[in-house]
Amino acid sequence: MSADASGLKPAVIVAEKLVQTISSGGEQIAILDGLSLSIAAGETVAIVGASGSGKTTLLSLLAGLDSPTSGSIMLAGQPLSSLDEDGRAALRAGRVGFVFQSFQLLAGLTALENVMLPAELAGRADAEKLARDTLAKVGLEARTGHYPYQLSGGEQQRVAIARAFAAQPEILFADEPTGNLDAATGTKIVDLLFQLNRDRGATLVLVTHDMTLAARCGRVLRLNAGRFDD
């Protein structure tokens, strides 16, 4: 079973026959059960499904954070299986952005330093300028020197979004980006996410429970027991 991009743009993410099993109490449990997909550049895709359906596992495999039990993944034209952990990290640096449910800001760094981080890791000399510009875009130019604990939940997620976009990535992965926010703030954050994505022309893959959010994406993939529903 596969989900295909409909446009003519080249695919930036291609997964073939992905299987991910874990052993639990001596038993092998399949989290992902031989699914395939292809996502074109600039596409916005929502992956939805019940808790435990394998959404987050799929996301971590597509981003190269983990290796599948079997199957292959191409990310930005590179087969992930040919890369070791450092190689996959180098591939992500500057080309892949992330937004997490729990923000995942480094407590020891200011908002600016957090946002600079991916660009710095990608070796960009203009990391600070990029970070300041992006923080201005999310409306936090006045809070650059603040530490995460000095920011509200919504502000923290805006910093996280700025961080995800600052290095101008080709692909953005978002895991329940509104999961830790109230409805009003969540809506604002989603608007911001889509607006930035439009401006930058990045590919967006997001995992969510929220069907309203999923509906804003160009394509919705439903995961059920490790497979896509038709």
Binding site: L65, D86, A90, A93, G94, F98, L106, A122
Partner: peptide, 12 residues
């Protein structure tokens, strides 16, 4: 883990 996600290599 987060640094690795953001693209940092182990040597760094």
């Amino acid at each position: 883990a987060l640094l690795k996600v953001l693209g940092a290599r182990r040597a760094f």
